[in-house]
Amino acid sequence: MAALTRGYMLQAVAKEHRIWVFKEEEPTWEQSLICGHTVVDTLDHQAMLRAAHDVAERGIPISGILCWDETRIQPSALLAENLGLPTMSPTVVATCRDKLATRNALQRHGATPVHAVAARDTREALRAAATIGYPVVLKPRALVGSNGTTLVTDPEHLTAVFESVATRSMPEVRERFPDPVVVEEYLDGPEISVDSLCWEGEVTPVFMARKHLGFPPHFEEVGHTVDAADPLLRDAELSRALHAAHAALGLSHGWTHTEWRLTARGPRLVEINARSGGDLIPYLGRLVTGVDAALAAASLALGERPAIPLRPQGAAAIRFLYPEQDTVVGSVQVDRSRLPATVELVEILAAPGQELLLPPAAHVTCRYALVIVTGDTPEQCAEALGAAERAVSLVPGS
């Protein structure tokens, strides 16, 4: 999966730079793109520091640290700081990683206000929800990929789901909090994400994705659309909100991926990430703008301001395909004769025998395929996605 979701970024950086990879296991698909590797716990910055000193002792200079995995951004920032290399402040990165700390920082600076309270148990969550007012959203403080995030409509619903949100975990997330759940006001309106370049406090939105969500009351991201002509790229209110949010968290240099709800009261930040977007959004951005987020991140890791040669043209979209119900995969088949000419990429994500469990049991891992298309407009992309989806079939197994 990593070869698909981030492989295109590694390929882009490898064309311009020599790369030494730190991984938990021996590299496979990366081998042709790197000059060497070290097997190390990449969630442990001290272990990586020892590994980096070993690399340097071999006479291999280390000029920058590059990471685009959300759970490893913090240890990577600590590693870069210890090596005296350009990086976002680890303290700032830690604030981005903690959903409550993010809200507190925004509140202190009066930026994109959203009511949010941390809760240790159901009683505290009920008290917070009563103060904020239903509906509310329950979020694990440090998980990724909308994992566990749930819209709650009333006290009975909150009582029924709180424990599952509070105890949800991911192996790659090691942060632990005594009050593990954030209770937030529900933000109504369309959701977008913005990938931006930050340099000396100036925030430049490079591309914007309109999110497509599914599986309510959860917030599964089932697709994204990037449009070069999106008027929000020139929206003064969103620009002010972007600058205010970055300033509140102390994000003055770096590439960021922010997620927003466009509410009746104006743009409200959902979360801010000290990295480029996931779900192949940078791939869509590159198709539409010509800007390579991976190369920009590499320049930033070297302390250099990236060139952003914007060449906006048309639109691109991605759709992830899900089973109608929990199932075991027999096979996934693609009738390529039925694919529209504007299909850029079709990838099968599920293997025969794999169990696909829909939210809330699982998130993201229940996708069985993805399709990327291009077009002159988002409407053309939506039409092409519909046709492409009909050409991909999931055959259940036993």
Rank of each mutant, 00 (worst) to 15 (best):
A2T: 09
Y8A: 11
V13W: 07
K15L: 15
R18W: 12
I19V: 15
F22W: 03
E25K: 14
E30F: 10
C35F: 09
G36E: 03
Q46T: 05
Q46A: 10
A51R: 00
A52D: 06
D54G: 01
I60W: 11
P61I: 13
P61G: 05
S63Y: 07
G64L: 13
C67K: 09
R72V: 00
Q74R: 14
P75C: 11
A77G: 14
L83E: 05
T87W: 12
V92W: 14
V93R: 12
A94H: 02
N104S: 02
A105I: 08
A111H: 08
A116E: 06
A116I: 12
T122P: 02
A129E: 03
V137A: 02
L143E: 04
G145A: 13
S146E: 03
V152I: 08
P155T: 01
L158P: 10
F162H: 03
F162L: 03
E163V: 05
T167I: 00
E175F: 00
D179H: 08
P180H: 13
V183C: 09
Y186Q: 12
L197A: 15
E200K: 10
G201R: 05
T204E: 15
P216L: 08
F219E: 06
P231Q: 11
P231H: 15
L232P: 09
L242G: 04
L251T: 04
W260P: 00
L269G: 03
A274M: 00
G277F: 05
I281C: 06
Y283W: 14
R286W: 15
V288S: 04
V288M: 01
T289K: 01
A293Q: 15
A296L: 04
A298V: 00
L302W: 06
G303L: 14
P306L: 00
I308N: 07
P309H: 01
P309S: 02
P312F: 05
A316M: 09
I318N: 00
V329T: 12
S331T: 06
D335I: 02
A341C: 11
T342P: 05
E344R: 09
L345W: 00
L357P: 00
P360L: 00
A362Y: 01
Y368M: 11
V371C: 05
T377C: 00
C381K: 01
G386C: 10
A387H: 06
R390W: 04
